[in-house]
Amino acid sequence: MSESIQTALRTRARELLELGEVSCVIGYERSPRGRVRPAFIYEPADADRLVWDNTCHHNLMVYLHDRKTPPRRGEEVPRVAVVAKPCDVRALNVLLHEGQIAREKVFVIGVACAGMCEEGTEELQARCRRCRERVPIFYDALVGEPPKVTAVDEDWADVVELEGMSAAERLAFWTREFDRCIRCYACRQACPGCYCFECMAEQVDPLWVGIAIELPEKAFFHVMRAYHLAGRCVECNACELACPMHIPLSLLNRKIAKEVEALFGYRAGGDPQTPPPLATFRKDEELPL
């Protein structure tokens, strides 16, 4: 299956570049060390570098932010094609909704996805086991057939486990986890939803966080970052996969996703028409405070 997807991806990329439809195809390639990494294809002849398998976990939508402005003043913003899994398309949907990306500047090569595996194993990532969206909600071209995969039900087990602890235990847990952080911002940089020109963590006036690489700064950054993604995080796990210190960041995002669903009945990136929950309200709603 992945092989036929790979062939189709290469063909499509070559075509798009030959016809001049796009200036670049963003996809995946294999590094000389054998690991899959993002690839940027500019020439039709390079299209054969593209690969597809169950380790293509990067969310490539993050690179669209680099291509929002023209390379030189007065020029057009070049159109790019991007290989997108269903979860990646939900992230793109959030960006479209927030007016970050012009739809006509992106050619979405949607891929029917059977799920991504945990690093170095053949075991599906937990989020992929739960995923019910095997085909992207929109695309300009679709590659692959919808795979026959039975999704397991979302039970929020990881979140519930932590909720079951006492507040003191939870604090101890997060103190331990946050303390490992080195403030490298790999989580933020890998996240398509984190595109602020200046992050509150690096803002100088007012100085919310400061320069120290110590527990208060680390905790502040992670808590606020997760909160800024409330109703926007599509659970692509790019943050957690990028984290060199193995901080379970998805737990923060999933806690918020769980509450957003319970409070507002909303799932991020699923529907381009509904505004994200913290950008809207209902006058008559009863919310537990």
Partner: peptide, 23 residues
């Protein structure tokens, strides 16, 4: 071309034994 895929995170500089920039 090389930096196309760079995320501009600080990981490489913080793990490096010789990077020493500070604020």
């Amino acid at each position: 071309r090389l930096s196309d895929r760079c995320l501009s995170c600080h990981a490489c500089t913080y793990v490096c034994p010789t990077c020493r920039c500070f604020d």
